[in-house]
Design a protein around this nucleic acid. Structure first.
Length: 571
RNA sequence: CGGGACGUAGCGCAGCUUGGUAGCGCACUACCUUGGGGUGGUAGGGGUCGCAGGUUCAAAUCCUGUCGUUCCGACCA
């Protein structure tokens, strides 16, 4: 490809509205162009990267026995109503109507359709197990799309679904997919960590997220991990061992239950200062609306609530903090002074965190403005506790009990054992050996293709631009004639360019009449892994060979440079 | 959903206070110049100033509404 013909425009400045480095570089290097919030055109350079990632995925998925298909992106409401998700899926599901007034939606995922398709075709146990996948655009109407391709509304995803006759067979396939994912990301030049995204609790669905670990990534997930064993988990789901620590308000002189005035003391921090007591002796109440119903979560003052865990404990689909007015309405209380004691437990669900077990003579809201109770103790009939707190660094690994560490991760893939979550409500069944109808046992396996591209940039860049891993780089080599007016340089550069292309090495020649500086800047920005510069030294029969990654310049003959390219690509 | 900021050429911005022919840099076109890390110059092309309404002889500028973008918040009561 000639640079003068390549449909790309690099910008001299970073875009103003980008935050994440991958977003800034994708825009500045001319890979993507925004059409609307969270919706982008993939320009030719980006499309080449996406194709490379997709092809690696295809090769690995096919090798592990999965079959590629392609399902509709626009879907009728019926399939979603069948699974029950038409009502449950919130505003992320973009709904619309066709000309006949039929309700439709843009697919955010394909469990419904694939279940429906498979149940029409795979009617016998003889056709199972089955694993089908597609690579396709998805649409999720995110509340706040940001970070470019890391959290767009429209994005490209590989989604695979497997169907089995037994849990054992599902688990076998799950392991196959886990291996497949590791090799896919390795081939993309990305090291990933498979991180638990569920506590692994008995009977619970098992799932893992594949994280590209980077300390620099803005936003995204916190990942807890253990150096001494394999344990790692998304902070959403991480558990830690925290010995039930006894905290006693009596140590601060509060050994008798009584109500005290706490004027204008609203936060735990203020309260702790005002009463001269450690935060871990205060029982904090946080009020939520869970699926339109009120709930309060009680937790030790120094701990924080993990909403995903709370959601699970409440068995809710959607939760949000209560607003001031709702606190009045449902709890007849005021923020800062809520107590679990005075609420009507038949109407308001109360959840206690595990940390509350060890609290004695604690401080509690009095359910009245400017008043708290000190020296309080839990009633004996409160016996149910849940893990609803966020793990903190330094708490202990649940497997080997060593302190946990934290890092940032970008989720690029996930694998999930679904069981009969979809097949049962959708009545998707096969006939088994005994002629009985059974629901499929299912698994699903996703990879964010466009997000993987962005994650690679988050991981591999420097001040000058992108440093593509060669496996997913848009092109392998850029040949730069320094002075296109010098016929020797131009001719020799052309020769190298043609030779490389003949060898199947994807090469761009920067034939523009710009100065060398411009070409170097663009080459670094776009991130070609190999650069061959044809300049003055060509009179001595030498060109410059430079890897974007390492930055060292070697003087080689054109033949040696071409050989070097071949060697690198063979590895 | 709450709060702030911003919408002027593909990108980055000025002009608005005090209403009077729409500007700068990059990018684009042509020519000259330069030729190893974003040369220097000359001449051009490109904008219903987000949209709608209002005030006015006159609105990018003032007022109202609306749409969009963006940042923060939407656990720590």
């Amino acid at each position: 490809m000639k640079m003068s013909k390549l449909f790309v425009q690099t910008l001299r400045e970073f875009p103003n509205d980008a935050e994440a480095i991958s977003h800034k570089l994708l825009v500045r290097a001319g890979f993507i162009k925004k059409l609307a919030n969270g919706i982008y055109t993939y320009m030719p350079l980006a499309q080449r990267v996406l194709n490379k990632i997709s092809n690696i995925i295809r090769e690995e998925m096919n090798a592990s026995g999965a079959q590629e298909l392609l399902m509709p992106f626009v879907q009728p409401a019926e399939v979603w109503q069948k699974s029950g998700r038409w009502a449950k899926y919130g505003k992320e599901l973009l709904r619309c109507k066709d000309r006949h007034d039929n309700e439709m939606c843009l697919a955010p995922t394909h469990e419904e359709v694939v279940t429906s398709v498979v149940s029409d075709v795979a009617k016998s146990y003889k056709q199972l197990p089955l694993n089908v996948y597609q690579i396709q655009t998805k649409f999720r109407d995110e509340i706040r799309p940001r970070f470019g391709l890391l959290r767009g509304r429209e994005f490209i995803m590989k989604d695979a679904y497997s169907f089995h006759t037994s849990q054992e067979d599902l688990e076998r396939e799950y392991k196959v997919m886990a291996q497949t994912y590791t090799s896919i990301f390795n081939r993309c030049g990305l090291e990933t960590k498979a991180v638990q995204s569920d506590s692994g609790a008995i009977g619970g669905a098992v799932s893992h997220e594949y994280m590209v670990l980077t300390d620099t990534a803005v936003g995204e997930n916190d990942v807890f991990y253990c150096d001494s064993c394999d344990y790692s988990a998304n902070s959403n789901h991480a558990i830690s061992i925290l010995p039930i620590q006894e905290t006693n308000g009596a140590d601060y002189g509060y050994n008798e239950e009584k109500t005290v005035d706490t004027p204008n003391v609203k936060t735990i921090e203020d309260l702790s200062k005002f009463l001269k007591i450690n935060e871990n002796c205060i029982l904090k109440a946080v009020a939520y609306i869970a699926d339109s119903k009120p709930a309060i979560a009680m937790i030790r003052g120094d701990k924080e609530i993990e909403e995903t865990k709370l959601m699970n404990a409440l068995n809710a689909i959607e939760i949000r903090p209560m607003e001031e007015s709702e606190i009045k309405e449902y709890l007849n209380s005021e923020a800062g002074f809520i107590s679990y004691r005075s609420v009507d437990k038949s109407k308001v669900k109360v959840i206690f965190d595990n940390t509350v077990k060890g609290m004695k003579n604690f401080v509690l809201g009095a359910n009245e403005r400017d008043k708290h109770i000190v020296g309080a103790n839990l009633e004996e009939d409160i016996k149910e506790f849940h893990d609803i707190s966020v793990v903190k660094v330094g708490e202990f690994c649940p497997v080997c009990k060593k302190p946990l560490k934290i890092t940032r991760g970008i989720e690029v893939g996930n694998i999930f054992q679904l069981g009969t979550k979809y097949s049962e409500p959708m009545n998707a069944v096969y006939t088994d050996e005994n002629g009985e109808l059974k629901p499929y046992i299912m698994g699903c396996y996703g990879i964010g293709v466009s997000r993987t591209m962005a994650a690679a940039i988050e991981k591999y860049h420097d001040d000058f631009g992108i440093i593509w891993p060669i496996e997913i780089a848009p092109y392998h080599v850029i040949v730069i004639p320094v002075d296109t007016k010098d016929p020797v340089q131009a001719e020799k550069a052309d020769e190298i360019y043609n030779k490389l292309n003949e060898l199947g090495i994807e090469t761009v020649i920067d034939d523009r009449s710009d100065r060398a500086g411009v070409k170097f800047k663009d080459a670094d920005l776009i991130g070609f892994p190999i650069r061959i510069t044809v300049g003055r030294t060509i009179s001595e029969g030498l060109v410059e060979f430079k890897l974007r990654k390492e930055g060292e310049v070697k003087k080689l003959t054109p033949e040696e440079a071409i050989e070097e390219c071949q060697k690198i690509l063979l590895n």
